[in-house]
């Protein structure tokens, strides 16, 4: 099993990792507050932690949907989080021209699930030498993730992490097939499970995505039972007023209880 190490956080190491943060950066204050709180909780519970947030939610269903601070200002916020809170940072890239700038602040570049087959994007992100988290497309068989990983590996960068985030099921729904964890782990790369996006119901909210966060915790437990290397989850101080994924993001004030029920040791 390959290991990906970023500062003190080791994916595939002795302790499982938590990648968490808001879906989108709505403001600097909100991002800082969330990162600071998560850092304190994970420090207390001895959980290796990486802060995640999108500087630009470019893959929205509706033109009306908010996208966050956008490029490049959202990156500035991520840089502040990294410097002031002192945690590694993950963000997703949607355009090749943004990759280098994103790599200047992020420790891990993420390839969004919808774009996981975009060769140029995967290759340009991997070419930065940063660790790459590739989310499995909702349309993709878990066996096929090995080919996506090979695209990244073709650049000589083997710091690759794979993330399961569910599979499209008919219209307006996502299902979680736990076999995908076992299959993706066969690739030899660390595997995360996105416990909040697994609960999505895309487009079921009338032009926007809804879902049901009550499944997040059981899904996380299933993930750990199948030896996943970490949990990926979206957290918001006030989910009801979030600009995206308001039905699935975990309220910041309940994160500690959520994490306490999970065993991050191996």
């Amino acid at each position: 099993m390959k290991k990906v190490k970023i500062d003190d956080v080791e994916f595939g190491g002795a302790r499982r990792v938590l990648v968490a943060g808001p879906c989108a950066i709505e403001s600097e204050d909100m991002a800082m507050k969330t990162a600071q709180t998560l850092a304190e909780i994970t420090d207390k519970l001895n959980i290796p932690f990486v802060f995640k947030a999108s500087y630009d939610k470019a893959n929205r269903l509706s033109i009306e949907s908010g996208r966050g601070l956008g490029f490049p200002k959202g990156l500035l916020v991520l840089r502040s989080v990294r410097e002031k809170v002192g945690v590694p940072v993950l963000t997703d890239v949607h355009e090749t021209y943004q990759v280098e700038a994103a790599a200047s602040v992020a420790d891990i570049l993420q390839i969004p699930a919808f774009l996981c087959r975009q060769t140029d994007l995967v290759v340009s992100a991997a070419s930065t030498g940063k660790a790459i988290n590739i989310k499995k497309g909702q349309f993709l068989a878990p066996q096929d993730m090995q080919y996506i990983a090979q695209k990244a590996l073709s650049t000589g960068n083997d710091k690759i992490i794979l993330t399961e985030r569910g599979s499209s099921f008919g219209y307006h729904d996502i299902v979680f097939d736990p076999r995908s964890i076992v299959i993706m782990k066969d690739s030899g790369y660390p595997v995360l499970v996105d416990a909040t996006h697994l609960c999505q119901q895309p487009g079921a909210g009338g032009g926007k995505t809804s879902g049901n966060r009550r499944f997040s915790l059981p899904f996380a437990k299933v993930a750990f039972a199948l030896d996943a290397d970490g949990i990926y989850m979206e957290v918001h101080p006030d989910p009801q007023n979030a600009i995206s994924d308001k039905d699935v993001q975990i309220p910041l004030n309940s994160v500690e209880d959520f994490l306490k029920t999970l065993d991050f040791s191996r």
């Binding site: 490049p72 990156l75 500035l76 840089r79 280098e100 700038a101 200047s104 602040v105």
Partner: peptide
């Protein structure tokens, strides 16, 4: 550090 410079110029 051209990558950091790029970020600043873009900002």
């Amino acid at each position: 550090d051209p990558r950091a410079a790029l970020m600043e110029f873009i900002l």
